[in-house]
């Protein structure tokens, strides 16, 4: 159910599933009429940038849409995939990066990969649906803290620490760089400061912050000057990059 909830049916095509037509940008057509559009996460205007359009067209002409076939591990790897990963890792200040086909599924799978049944997840109450779904897959315990509330986070970390001592597991804290609904930044720096008291790894979903936040656009961890404190960084290509897919670094 979308943001219009139970009223979605009544408004199909208008409030839900509207069709914006024309070249992607601030001026597009909706139901045949010109509109000034403020709804797209095309933050940097790259979607219709002439160099981007040219690169997309050239690559499609050269390779078609099929190549490479198969999973990366089996038969679907290429030098370009690896180069892009290297560039991304360097840009966001991490050692390595891995491409994901979609942000949403990628995040679900990242969480699944990072924890086992003995581990404990501590996460922000207003986390994006993909984080919630990832946490749902987790076989161990999870504790949710109140949105961006560091005291609440500390309390849950205390509970998580007690539990992890019993299970012999570790703690994973998950929050967002930029919360897409409210525009609030996750309090990364303050969460990282809690590492003085508790042992945990921090995973951030910076879907909105990648390319927009920080001096070089590396992300919210750059903006808050805490690149090293973020253990696992996630960004999507669906927003400032105006593409599809995502990465984890």
């Amino acid at each position: 159910m979308g943001p219009l909830g139970q009223h979605q049916k009544m408004a199909h095509g208008y409030f839900a599933f509207p069709k914006l037509e024309g070249e992607i940008g601030p001026h597009m057509k909706f139901r045949g009429k010109d509109h000034l559009v403020w709804s797209l996460n095309n933050y940097l205007g790259l979607a219709n940038h002439p160099e981007v359009r040219e690169a997309d067209a050239k690559a499609a002409a050269e390779f078609g849409l099929a190549y490479p076939m198969g999973a990366r591990m089996m038969s679907g790897n290429s030098n370009y995939h690896e180069m892009l990963e290297k560039d991304l890792a360097e840009f966001v200040g991490k050692d390595d990066a891995f491409l994901l086909n979609y942000g949403y599924q990628g995040m679900v799978s990242i969480i699944d990969t990072l924890v086992d049944r003995n581990d404990v997840i501590v996460y922000d109450a207003e986390s994006h649906a993909c984080i919630i779904d990832g946490v749902r897959l987790h076989m161990g315990k999870r504790f949710v803290y109140q949105h961006n509330d560091i005291e609440s986070c500390r309390k849950q970390l205390e509970r998580a620490t007690r539990l992890a001592e019993q299970t012999g597991g570790a703690i994973l804290v998950i929050t967002e760089g930029v919360f897409g609904m409210s525009g609030a930044q996750g309090k990364l720096k303050e969460i990282i400061a809690l590492k003085d008291e508790f042992k945990f790894r921090l995973l951030i979903d910076d879907a909105h912050g990648f390319g927009t936040m920080g001096k070089t656009g590396a992300g919210t961890h750059e903006a808050q000057d805490c690149i090293d404190g973020v253990d696992i960084y996630f960004g999507t290509f669906a927003k400032s990059m105006a593409g599809i897919g995502a990465f984890v670094a």
Binding site: E62, P68, G70, R72, N77, Y80, N101, G245
Partner: peptide, 9 residues
């Protein structure tokens, strides 16, 4: 399956 090449480029 991996991301298609045009997307990567």
């Amino acid at each position: 399956k991996a991301l298609p090449m045009p997307m990567v480029l």
